[in-house]
Design a protein around this nucleic acid. Structure first.
Ligand code: FES
Ligand code: FES
Lengths: 152, 152
DNA sequence: GTTATCCGGACTACCACAGTCCTGATTGTT
DNA sequence: AACAATCAGGACTGTGGTAGTCCGGATAAC
């Protein structure tokens, strides 16, 4: 189904939310703002921090802060940070010891151009593009700052 | 990891093999030629037949035959036939009832352009492109293999 | 010192995928 | 007519990754 993980979806939500504020933001705060459960938000943030997409400030008054502008974060970076490197098949480049019959398999490295095409397409779309996609024409501030009171 | 299923990989192998012969080919024959286990090959063939990529001839002397030329089969068609429609997230278009909080989620339909970009990139690459990638002039798989771990 | 927050991992439940197999239906061969 | 070969369509199970939660420890402000 060529599906990416929900964590990546959450990551985009969190990053966009993170970009909307100036100072650092805490995990519970983002969780409350986005409606995503707090533990999951914390997990996503930690993953993003490991991927150098966000910076963390420990201790009281701590939180997370966006490292780069949304326009400088392609979707491929988020996917790579959360889901790992983009590898359509087991035999693209990194993991070459997956196929049982490598010597006779006619697919050796065949998917590389396909994989690269996807990577290229994903690199061209930044989070800023996804952000503006949700603002139709009128500025509906409610749309970008939703509250999750109905979430149950 | 944005990985597609191994069945899709097998499907490409099978389709390329199917294009190399003139008449119909049986499941065991393709299995023997490709090294893929027979039951798996049969499953892939049945899936491809359901997707109208191959035609089947039942009974003795039966087998499978390619419907369209390799150049007319984009990779996206194979993926769609085997793995189902390309849907990066649960909320692209077809399945709109996946998100628990659709009304407040700021990602509603956000992935659509990303999904479309991938679909477009995949539509531009045909099986013929992947085929020529592996046949330089002769079948010398060792030439383009940097290092073979020879795990098997 | 206390409190709030992040860090790093372990842990479990679940679901899609991978692979196999079985019972019919169809068709050519003997 | 009987037989053999092949596809059709499903059911079935094991495995692996994902989703989500949780805990003890480190860090820094108050
Ligand atoms: S599928 Fe990767 S080498 Fe065969
Ligand atoms: S993630 Fe799909 S609508 Fe929220």
């Amino acid at each position: 189904m060529l599906r990416l993980s929900k964590l990546t979806d959450y990551a985009v939500v969190v990053l966009v939310r993170l970009a909307g504020m100036e100072g650092v933001q805490t995990s519970p705060g983002i969780a409350a703002a986005t409606g995503i459960p707090e533990p999951t938000v914390a997990k996503v943030l930690k993953t993003l921090a490991a991927g150098d997409l966000v910076s963390s400030q420990r201790g009281a008054k701590g939180g997370y802060r966006l490292n780069r502008d949304l326009a400088a974060i392609p979707v491929s970076d988020v996917i790579a940070a959360v889901d790992g490197p983009i590898a359509l098949t087991a035999c693209v480049d990194g993991s070459a010891s997956e196929c049982e019959s490598q010597g006779l398999c006619p697919m050796r490295g065949r998917w590389d151009p396909v994989n690269d095409a996807i990577q290229s397409a994903l690199s061209r779309i930044t989070l800023a593009d996804m952000q503006v996609a949700l603002l139709p024409a009128f500025r509906t501030p409610v749309a970008q700052v939703p509250f999750q009171s109905a979430a149950e």
